[in-house]
Design a binder for these strands. Structure first.
Length: 799
DNA sequence: CTTAAGAAGGTTTTT
DNA sequence: CCTTCTTAAG
């Protein structure tokens, strides 16, 4: 072999790169190989954008900007030429050394930042990166906006007056906090609800409007002035509590970068390539965040689909994607329009619907998939009948060989899930609901999280107040209010006052209770600081010391077993977290993970059950068969949207998202009458149906309505259905200590026992409750306690 | 301070 | 329809 000319080498390198990514279509490959400079990828639904993202990152790490670079490696030896030939002709991998020779400006994994919106998307991205790149994949910053920002703020938050252990408040915490502020400012919730104040504040933060600025803008508008005051106080209190709400994470991260050139510089140099997924859902603050980081390198790649922008209500501005080209000069735009997901009929229906929108970049998806079934449009009598129809269709589908997990039901609002749930329980159809009452929003979980938070950060007043009387300790509002007042007057934290309650006259009466509470918390803090205590031991300790489980039996009327299951599941999450993070595991880390997690992140596709969720939650997912119940004017599009053209466009995009989730079959279902918020209403079929060409539709209606269906698999017990829904809660693998523990020893009154934390004691009474026994035990050292036998891990003692 | 019962209010979508 | 808050009685 002879020496090659520069252009031959160049040519050879192009061939290698094209070969490397030959599995993609031309557009996709173009996106993968375009590395430097701003890049806008308009990726239609199901066009393989995650694949593109993963491969693009792989390309950057392996070859850098080699494809577009004019710099050509020097002479290639015969051996090297041979290797390349072997690779091109016979797929024999290139030696790493040669890859390095061909690459231009390749960078290390940690120099790449990939931002997504959900943890699930981030997780999936990471998984695929690890699959493709091996361990290197782990070093890529692939995370959500919120966790990226949180990570930065943990590192440098002191510049803004926050500690590195700051707490992240969720909506409920924020609400409580705002209520306090309203009280302090004398704002009547009836005149100006905390909800509307919070939403105004949230909007302000999305647009980087700080309290002072907000006040200025308020002018003479009384309402706005009140909101401005509340905003200011709210922020001050958050800071005192060392806490941030969701919007603060973004907003403060932007402030951090804007006001600290050295920090900005650090990250600008660190991240040579930035990628943002679902760019159409970014708000102004997020846009600034990304822009600041990418300013120096200019290597910003955003992926999005203006037709799938469905979070305007959350501050997302579609302008971010519509104006990307003008904001970042010399943007390369690539459209991915080939759909690999749906049948022709489904895709054509989606195209037909979205075409009616004016505000769009314009693209038409096409597919090589087969034509498939027509789209079913079914009209039912009532919402009962609608649910019935779904159940029947699913059961007959399963009889024909489908799995339950092939079916998804996507609705416009969470409240639609109730009737469906009832019918599914009755027909024995296993199902899972994603969203709605979310796991981390359940009372008992919030309580446990609150305990963990307070242990981690005793300044967290909102959460301290949440648990101070939970379980009931006879510490009432009045006492807490008094303590708060003292704390404010003395400039101390609430916890400090409570800890020394006996020193304050007004607290004298409740001092013993307060001190006892404080000592529990203090012991838990000590346990946390003790290196020998693992997180799950700490968690157990909380349960033990607070008698939380026992208190559920006396105070809750709902299904106690469910609550216990939930508490156990949180334990299993904690253990899982510890296992995954090993030495790195910390309470703070766990709390952060928990506070940024959503239900959809836990969606586990492996279990065989029908899934139900809102259309919003379904973005990014796909299912063989999709039902859209409540496809009616007034529901989808919603009532408020009907006379508002802008809103209608948003609803239409939502419909587009919904339709494009389906791979093989799609059912648009409406009911002629339905109970809605207590009263019956009659809705017309959704206007979006009329936008689909008639020849794609197959219209049916319920002929005669037989009530409960004597069907394939008749009424299974409610127990079985519950077993399915709480399957996750029960199954927590080898690490779940509660359920894998040997069956509890039976105890009776008079038995002497030993408890790990409380020491020796004697059983006073044993009351069977559910599968467990409530024991009242007189301990030698700590007095009488109520414990659940299965949880207490008691040992029998010889008297 | 707790509990229970009654009234009222608010209903889209969520990181 | 549901949850959440208020109120009055224990």
């Amino acid at each position: 072999m002879s020496n090659l000319s520069t252009s031959q080498i160049f040519e050879l390198r192009q061939q290698v790169l094209n070969k490397e990514f030959c599995k993609m279509n031309d557009r996709q490959r173009e996106a993968v190989l375009h590395v430097n400079g701003p890049l806008l990828i308009l990726a239609g639904a199901g066009s393989g954008k995650t694949t593109v993202l993963v491969n693009r990152i792989a390309n950057i790490i392996k070859y850098g900007n080699a494809f577009s670079s004019q710099t050509v490696p020097g002479d290639l030896s015969d051996e090297e030429q041979n290797s390349i030939k072997e690779y091109l002709d016979h797929d024999i991998p290139l030696p790493q050394q040669l890859v390095d020779r061909l690459s231009v400006g390749a960078c290390r994994p940690w120099q790449i930042l990939a931002i997504t919106f959900t943890n699930k998307a981030a997780g999936e991205l990471k998984n695929r990166l690890v699959n493709m790149l091996g361990e290197d994949g782990n070093d890529i910053w692939a995370s959500t906006f919120h966790s990226t920002c949180a990570r930065m703020l943990r590192r440098d938050g002191d510049r803004l007056g926050y500690s590195s252990h700051f707490t992240i408040y969720d909506t409920d915490d924020s609400r409580r906090m705002m209520k306090e502020c309203q009280k302090a400012l004398g704002i009547d919730d009836k005149l100006l609800s905390c909800k509307s104040i919070l939403s105004a504040i949230s909007h302000a933060k999305d647009n980087m409007v700080l309290p002072e600025e907000f006040m200025k803008q308020a002018g003479n508008d009384n309402r706005l002035v009140l909101i401005a005051k509340a905003y200011k106080l709210y922020q001050a209190r958050l800071r005192e509590a060392d806490a941030m709400d969701f919007d603060d994470l973004i907003c403060n991260a932007v402030l951090l970068l804007q006001n600290n050139p050295d920090v900005l510089d650090y990250y600008q140099n660190k991240f040579r390539y930035i990628m943002v997924d679902e760019y159409q859902d970014t708000n102004h603050a997020q846009y600034l965040f990304v822009k600041l980081l990418a300013q120096k390198s200019g290597n910003l790649c955003v992926v999005g689909d203006d037709d799938q922008s469905i979070y305007k209500f959350r501050g997302a501005t579609i302008e971010n994607i519509l104006s990307f080209e003008s904001t970042f000069p010399n943007t390369k735009v690539i459209r991915l329009e080939q759909n690999y997901r749906s049948t022709k009929n489904i895709l054509n229906a989606a195209n037909a619907v979205i075409e009616n929108n004016f505000q769009r970049k314009g693209k038409t998806l096409w597919t090589n998939n087969k034509t498939g079934e027509k789209i079913s449009v079914h009209t039912a009598y009532s919402e009962q009948d609608e649910a019935d129809f779904l159940a029947r269709t699913i059961l007959s589908g399963v009889a024909d060989g489908r799995k339950y997990s092939d079916f998804a039901i996507l609705y416009r609002m969470n409240s639609q899930s109730n009737i469906l749930e009832k019918i599914f329980v009755k027909s024995g159809i296993p199902y899972r609901i994603i969203g709605g009452q979310r796991f981390y929003e359940r009372k008992e979980i919030r309580d446990m999280i609150a305990y963990l938070s307070v242990i981690n950060n005793p300044n967290d007043e909102i959460r301290l107040r949440r648990i101070i009387n939970q379980p009931k300790r006879s510490i009432g509002d009045k006492t807490v209010a008094q303590a708060t007042e003292i704390a404010a007057a003395r400039g101390e934290s609430l916890f400090d006052v409570i800890r020394h309650a006996d020193q304050y006259e007004p607290l004298k009466r409740s001092a013993p209770k307060l001190l006892q509470f404080a000592s529990i918390i203090q012991e838990l803090i000590d346990a946390l600081n003790d290196e020998n205590t693992s997180l799950n031991e700490l968690y157990r300790l909380i349960l033990d010391k607070t008698d939380y489980i026992a208190s559920l039996y006396t105070s809750e009327n709902g299904d106690v077993q469910d609550r216990i299951d939930n508490i156990n599941e949180l334990a299993s999450n904690l253990i899982k977290y510890e296992e995954e993070n090993g030495e790195e595991a910390s309470l703070e880390g766990f709390l952060e993970e928990v506070s940024l997690i959503t239900d959809i992140d836990n969606f586990d596709e492996s279990s065989d059950s029908v899934v139900m969720m809102t259309v919003h939650s379904a973005k990014g997912l796909e299912f063989p068969v999709v039902f859209l119940p409540g496809f009616e004017d007034g529901i989808f599009p919603g009532m408020q949207a009907i006379y508002n053209p802008v809103e209608i466009e948003e609803e239409r995009r939502l419909a587009y998202v919904a339709i494009t989730r389906a791979k093989e079959e799609l059912f648009l279902v409406n009911a002629e009458s339905r109970m809605i918020f207590g009263s019956t209403s009659r809705n017309k079929p959704s206007r979006f149906i009329e936008e689909i060409p008639e020849e794609l539709l197959n219209r049916t209606r319920t002929r005669e309505w037989k009530k409960p269906q004597p069907g394939t698999r008749l009424p299974t017990s409610a127990f079985e259905a519950r077993a399915i829904t709480t399957e996750a809660a029960r199954n927590f693998g080898p690490s779940g200590f509660f359920h894998s523990a040997p069956p509890a020893v039976q105890f009776k009154a008079g038995d002497c026992v030993f408890h790990k934390t409380f020491g020796k004691g004697m059983v006073l009474s044993a009351t069977p409750m559910g599968n467990d026994t409530l024991l009242e035990i007189a301990f030698d050292k700590v007095g009488t306690k109520k414990l659940m036998a299965n949880f207490a891990r008691l040992q029998r003692e010889q008297p």
